[in-house]
């Protein structure tokens, strides 16, 4: 059992950590998250390994752990009231500094989303999952996935628009 498990962790461990980092927003907490899920998977690895897609199973467990785990800590977490001061964007175009600032800003806004909305966005935009796959991972219906995505993207657009007014951004909620 252990050889197969060890090989999986060596081969896919870093990918799982990157995914968890994007999911929870903090590399140290991501490490904790992945360790916890893998430690639980260790004992049952023979059964997990026999599945068609063991990595998908583990990734699903990471998402579930994140959703539960983050809430256990939620009483000590505070939503971010103000984003850190950033340099004013120099204007439209492809200024690398502007792009970097915009990505940083988006990352900070992502951190403030409710966990389920954030998970939907990460599964959709980081893992390129379909809504059906996301629904399966989260254990919910397709309309719920779409509702979360719509609400989250709406919030992000509004926040980005507020911070970069008078610039406007195209609204495109529906997907797939």
């Amino acid at each position: 059992m252990s050889q197969g498990f060890d090989a999986f962790v060596v081969a896919r461990g870093h990918a799982l950590r990157r995914f968890a980092h994007v999911l929870c927003g903090d590399p140290h907490l991501a490490e904790d998250l992945v360790q916890e899920v893998l430690a639980r998977a260790h004992r049952r690895w023979e059964r997990i390994e026999a599945m068609d897609l063991p990595e998908a199973y583990v990734r699903k467990a990471v998402v579930r752990e994140y959703l539960s785990w983050r809430r256990r800590r939620s009483s000590t977490e505070r939503a971010m009231a103000e984003l850190p001061d950033r340099p004013q964007p120099p204007g439209p175009g492809h200024d690398p500094a502007h792009d970097l600032a915009a990505r940083d800003e988006m990352w900070a806004l992502l951190a403030g989303l409710p966990r389920a909305q954030r998970a939907v966005l990460v599964l959709r935009f980081y893992l390129d999952m379909t809504d059906e796959e996301i629904a399966n991972t989260l254990g919910c219906a397709h309309p719920t996935v779409r509702a979360h995505a719509s609400r989250a993207l709406g919030r992000l657009r509004a926040a980005m628009a507020d911070r970069s007014a008078p610039q406007t951004v195209e609204v495109s909620v529906e997907r797939r």
Binding site: V22, A102, R103, W107, L110, L153, L156, S172
Partner: peptide
């Protein structure tokens, strides 16, 4: 959309 593209880029960068 631009926001979706930015979101994807931010995630992959991190």
């Amino acid at each position: 959309s631009d926001v979706e593209r930015l979101l994807r880029d931010a995630m992959h960068e991190r």
